[in-house]
């Protein structure tokens, strides 16, 4: 097109874009910056350059224990959410069960309902029925939060692929279970994979449900950071946070490899 957009508007847009991107990334960059400080207190720009806070974090059992808890929990959520979510999404996609729309709505409801409400409800129900909350309670809460993501990404993949594959497999002699195993699962694998990454990320970063269910056993990494922030933060918090940011970057690269970032945002 000839001179489609006026020049002044292009310049203004470019400036605005830079500002917005900076605004979005500033808190992350600052945290990473602080983590390399040599000083004893939190300061930005960092004073001097050192890895001493990373060394402190990695040698203190406190943070590594929390990281281990978070990691185990997140992996368990990834496996469970992928399995349950893929199964549910396949059934929802076929629309064979009566009330499929309502069931689908139920599965996606945690995306809309504020997680503080789920967290409070879980706390009350668990305490009344079983007493003290445990890591299992947090697992269940995170599972409810992660399921809709797996279901959504799987449904998205299923809805763009050939709707007749499963039927074609049936006409070629495959029974329902063989069709599921040999045709439908391979078909929705990219969606399940994307959902699995999200599930991991949600569980690893989640703080609301974990905070409500808080007990000594439930010291995940975000909880550990939150409690330190409430009282006396020092640069070791920045080092832990930076490690979490690096993990997120890694996760995003993996998602891009597996399914393509462009697709995820669609």
């Amino acid at each position: 097109m000839v001179d489609a957009i006026p020049r002044w508007l292009r310049l203004a847009t470019a400036a605005a874009l830079v500002l917005i991107v900076a605004y979005l990334l500033v808190p992350l960059l600052v945290v990473v910056g602080v983590s390399f400080t040599a000083a004893d207190y939190i300061s930005f720009p960092p004073q001097g350059l050192s890895l001493r806070w990373y060394a402190k974090v990695l040698s203190s059992g406190d943070f590594t224990d929390a990281a281990m808890t978070s990691l185990v929990l997140a992996v368990a959520i990834t496996v469970a959410a992928s399995a349950l979510g893929a199964g549910a999404a396949i059934v929802l996609h076929r629309r064979v069960l009566p009330g499929s729309a309502a069931i689908g709505g139920l599965f996606l409801a945690p995306l809309i309902l504020p997680s503080i409400i789920l967290a409070l409800g879980l706390l009350m129900l668990w305490s009344r029925s079983f007493g003290a909350t445990s890591l299992l309670t947090v697992f269940i809460g995170h599972l409810v939060l992660a399921l809709p993501y797996v279901i959504r990404t799987t449904l998205a993949v299923l809805s763009t692929s050939d709707p007749f594959l499963a039927e074609a497999a049936r006409t070629m002699g495959a029974g329902p279970w063989k069709t599921l195993w040999r045709v439908t699962l391979p078909q929705c694998l990219p969606g399940v994979a994307a959902g699995a990454f999200f599930a991991f990320n949600i569980s690893f970063d989640e703080a609301v449900v974990s905070l409500f269910l808080r007990s000594p056993e439930i010291t995940t990494l975000p909880i550990r950071i939150y409690t330190t922030l409430e009282y006396s933060p020092d640069p070791s918090i920045a080092a832990v946070s930076s490690l979490m940011i690096f993990l997120t970057v890694l996760l995003i690269l993996l998602i891009d490899r597996a399914v393509g970032l462009q697709k995820v945002t669609e």
């Binding site: 808190p27 992350l28 960059l29 945290v31 979490m244």
Partner: peptide
Amino acid sequence: TLPLMTSVVVRTFG
């Protein structure tokens, strides 16, 4: 996506 997928606790600290 990077901020979206970073823990809110970390961002708030920033």
